[in-house]
């Protein structure tokens, strides 16, 4: 089966990925996983076995979760594919993404894209899934970090179960706000720009100031 690399049999793939039309030529032996990651640069889709035994490579094809490692790229022509990169819409994270980030549902983050897409398909099909529904829907996605519990809670939170999400201040910057900027050297804090300083903040303990002009210096305790 030796053949000239680059001279390998090529195939043509025309489909829609995350809403964008894609029309490419790629090696004929490739699965959707390889094309997404290697030909389209969409590395958000992961892989843990390439044999259909872990669920890390799950993407949505025409809205249904499938394993991209077992889908021939050539068989995806004409289909609509959604990867984790396509979950974010209009600069906003999907509610599932917000909940996963807030509630500890992503630890190492490697199984996360596959789980997010699988959960998205579930919520698109069932508005208010039960814990058992969620367990079953995610039973094709192995997670080695979380023990799944915070994942279940995040899915429940994203579809409006009574699970508190974090205050925005604990979430980090929102794209619409951007970091607050003020010119260096401005003499006063912007009027009313800050909340009442917290009383329970700890006071600075003093000690000798040490200016370090070169951050590269080791300074051992």
């Amino acid at each position: 089966m030796a053949s000239q690399p680059g001279g390998r049999a090529q195939t043509h793939l025309a489909c829609v990925v995350n809403g964008d039309p894609v029309d490419i030529t790629c090696a004929g032996y490739k699965t959707l996983l390889e094309v997404l990651r290697e030909d389209l640069g969409l590395t958000g889709t992961k892989h843990g076995c390439e044999l259909g035994e872990c669920g890390a490579c799950a993407v949505l094809v025409d809205g249904e979760p499938v394993l991209s490692c077992l889908a021939l790229a050539v068989e995806c022509s004409g289909r609509a594919i959604t990867t984790v990169e396509g979950l974010t819409r209009d600069g906003r994270l999907d509610p599932l993404q917000e909940a996963f980030a807030d509630l500890g549902a992503a630890q190492c983050g490697y199984c996360t894209p596959g789980i997010l897409l699988t959960a998205r398909a579930l919520l698109d099909r069932v508005e208010r899934p039960t814990r058992d529904d969620i367990r079953e829907a995610l039973s094709g996605n192995l997670c080695r970090c979380t023990g799944y519990q915070q994942i279940f809670e995040a899915v429940e939170s994203a579809c409006g179960h009574a699970q508190p999400t974090l205050r925005r201040a604990q979430r980090g910057p929102e794209p619409v706000e951007g970091p607050r900027t003020s010119a260096c050297g401005s003499r006063e804090a912007p009027e009313g720009s800050e909340a009442e300083p917290s009383r329970r903040a700890r006071a600075h303990g003093g000690g000798a100031p040490c200016a370090v002009n070169n951050a590269g210096r080791g300074d051992h305790a």
Binding site: G44, V84, E85, L87, A101, A106, G109, T112, L116
Partner: peptide, 9 residues
Amino acid sequence: VDGRAKVTG
């Protein structure tokens, strides 16, 4: 702090 990166792939 790395939550957003992990959930966006």
